[in-house]
């Protein structure tokens, strides 16, 4: 294969990886964030304790998180076919990725919400805030730095999952590493893909931490 073809290949597959990770992350957050809010709100120490619902949600979250991602791809095949119409390529990775990542995101968000000072929540209650107002005006803004750190961790985890999906026809950088590096014995290509993944992880992680630091007003002498 000529060099330019490789460049083209990498370009396409980086695109596929970014596409998978981006879409999956957004959907995972759309599901995981509300789920995390529910988990922390219905906790015994939460703003609206509902032990039954909390245990049920916790159980579902844990069950989904216990399925290994490669197995999840297989289990989710019927759903994948139903929702995206194919079981191959980057698109097909999104449904199993979301099913695996959303509960992970939920737990990350839950732990961020639990870090919010209980006194501040009590103060909001004393001012007559409703639970919805507490969630929107206290829990989410006050835990924003922690949520951003969590997002960096979640998105890099999703990136890792997406690379794993390369093994089962998922496309993306993981697919290059497996197909060229392992099956076709071209270690250089494999390393190229791995290094690109490493750079992506670094970028996402650092960006997340930077945003978290920038947005955190708890630090003295900010300006």
């Amino acid at each position: 294969m000529a060099g330019s073809e490789f460049v083209q290949l990498f370009k396409t597959e980086i695109g596929a990886t970014v596409y998978m990770v981006l879409i999956s992350s957004v959907i995972s957050y759309l599901i995981g964030l509300p789920l995390g809010i529910l988990l922390s709100a219905t906790d015994d120490e939460g703003i609206c304790p509902l032990p039954g619902l909390n245990r049920l949600l916790g159980l579902v979250t844990n069950l989904l998180r216990s399925v290994p991602f490669l197995i999840m791809i297989v289990i989710a095949l019927p759903l994948t076919r139903l929702t995206v119409g194919t079981t191959l390529g980057a698109k097909a990775v999104i449904p199993p990725l979301v099913i695996s990542a959303a509960p992970y995101v939920a737990r990350m968000a839950e732990s961020s919400f639990k870090e919010v000072d209980r006194g501040v929540i009590e103060a909001a209650k004393s001012m007559g805030a409703s639970n919805l107002q507490i969630i929107l005006k206290v829990l989410i803004p006050e835990s924003r730095p922690s949520l951003l750190v969590g997002a960096a961790i979640s998105v890099t985890t999703i990136l890792g999952y997406s690379a794993m999906a390369g093994n089962l026809g998922g496309g993306g950088l993981g697919a290059i590493a497996i197909n060229y590096g392992y099956y076709r014995r071209e270690p250089l290509i494999m390393w190229g893909a791995v290094i690109l993944l490493m750079i992506l992880v670094q970028l996402i992680q650092e960006l997340g931490l930077l945003l978290a630091r920038r947005s955190d007003k708890r630090i003295r002498n900010i300006k």
Binding site: G119, E122, A123, A124, M127, G128, K137, P141
Partner: peptide
């Protein structure tokens, strides 16, 4: 009814991510 009863605390319980004026605006937003 709670809106007719303000409360202050030992640990102040201000919203850390809001500046002073926005902290004071909080109950008015509520």
């Amino acid at each position: 009814a709670r809106q007719s009863m303000g409360m202050i605390f030992q640990q102040f319980n201000l919203l850390w991510q809001r500046n002073v004026i926005k902290n004071i605006l909080f109950p008015l937003e509520i």
